[in-house]
Design a protein around this nucleic acid. Structure first.
Lengths: 233, 233
DNA sequence: CGTGCTGTTGTACGATCGTTCAACAAGTTG
DNA sequence: CAACTTGTTGAACGATCGTACAACAGCACG
């Protein structure tokens, strides 16, 4: 198509374009980040069908061959995008929680950040679902899941532990039985979050973000009440 | 595998194969059902990659051209499989609930059926996640979702309504405010169910089925207590 | 300005995709 | 047994897939 004539011919006949490079070299680190961003953007726009080398390279504005120069294969690129997606979510939620100064406020901030843009965006949630759909048959995705999703679970468990610990401090010092069931409570809360995200993704008009926060707070409230009850019993 | 060799050995040239038909004609209804079953089986085995005409037709033991004879295109076949998958789940859960005779027992049976085989199977859940991942960019899938997922929500809401209604009958006759929040409670329960399914799919060893049932029952219990509280207040 | 490193391009390749369609044949009918 | 209907086959098509690779070119450096 273009061929080797482009550069020389332009230099002679078209002074305006003669000096403009046809592409810009970038550091691998930056280019990798751009390719990951393009991958996520393609997922948002086209779902699973957006995960093709040509679609992604077009979105990134590079040629088809560049991806395999920076990533060994497509699966690794997708896994890298999944990892970035995970880390960005956890960082966002962790930062939101850190801005508050009491356990209760931290959890509330966490929940409100969970159900606010950019996390509560139909496109974003659809990206999650596609990643989840890849999980079972992609080793790289599984590897990333085990490595990064754990952080999310730890974050939730930490927030709950602080809250329950504080709520029962006045009574006995440490919640009895609360530690054993803290694991289950965290599982339930993350499941509730994931489920609400999923349902919102499938039917955005079904409930409002505020209601989702309220549902999660009801869960936590019931948990605290139970922990306190066990404590005083 | 092929056709039955029950034909009489009246063969002239090749007694072994002469009379055996190369295929058996079937009613469109039966063939469609077989193709749908093959589609789901391929999804279980190969995830999203299993959704190819050749993989499915091989699984069904038919030629590649037959699918487009019974379905206008691949998307419609997948949507039909999704519809069948939905309906089968709802029927199973509804039947389990119907076997019990009190509202509480019905809900418990519903939950236990939700977290027992064949519903709580990693392959089955992976199929759900793939379907959900297709949702946003496939009109046929959206159409099926709107048509059949509603039944599931109605089932959950009905079970909850019976339970709350019964639990507060002795007090005042009808739950005050419970009706308004029944919608949210049903949303939360379905979200909790979906989320627990999803988490179990991503990490089957994270919790045991009994624990999932217990988590859901905690949710419902808290709901009932709140409804009773509102009633007596 | 020439040289070298390497990020980048774009073609090429074989595989597989969804769909089409003419031909075949199973099973029913007269 | 012949005629007919229609479920079924399988080759063929063009499109697109992921990857490989030789050539090109941006840019730092001497």
């Amino acid at each position: 198509m273009k061929g080797p004539r482009t550069r020389a011919a332009a230099a002679v006949h078209n002074p305006l374009e003669a000096r403009r490079p046809r592409f810009r070299r970038q550091l691998p680190q930056q280019r990798r980040a751009a390719l990951i961003a393009a991958t996520i953007e393609c997922l948002k726009r086209y779902g699973h069908d957006g995960l093709s080398i040509r679609t992604i390279s077009a979105q990134a504005g590079v040629s088809v061959g560049l991806i395999n120069h920076h990533f060994p294969n497509k699966d690794e690129l997708v896994a890298a995008a999944f990892s970035h997606f995970n880390r960005e979510l956890v960082d966002t939620l962790k930062a939101a929680a850190a801005r508050a100064d009491t356990p209760g406020a931290r959890l509330r901030a966490f929940l409100e950040a969970s159900f606010s843009p950019p996390n509560l965006d139909a496109d974003v949630l659809a990206v999650w679902v596609v990643f989840w759909g890849l999980y079972r048959h992609s080793r790289p995705i599984q590897r990333v899941q085990r490595a990064t999703y754990t952080d999310y679970v730890h974050l939730v468990r930490g927030l709950l532990a602080d809250l329950v610990g504080k709520g029962t401090e006045g009574g006995r010092g440490r919640a009895r039985g609360g530690g054993a069931n803290l694991r289950l409570a965290a599982i339930g809360l993350t499941a509730l979050l994931d489920g609400l995200w999923l349902d919102w993704c499938l039917e955005p008009g079904k409930f409002r973000p505020r209601e989702a926060v309220a549902l999660c707070e009801s869960w936590v409230e019931a948990l605290c009440r139970r922990a306190a009850g066990w404590n005083s019993a």
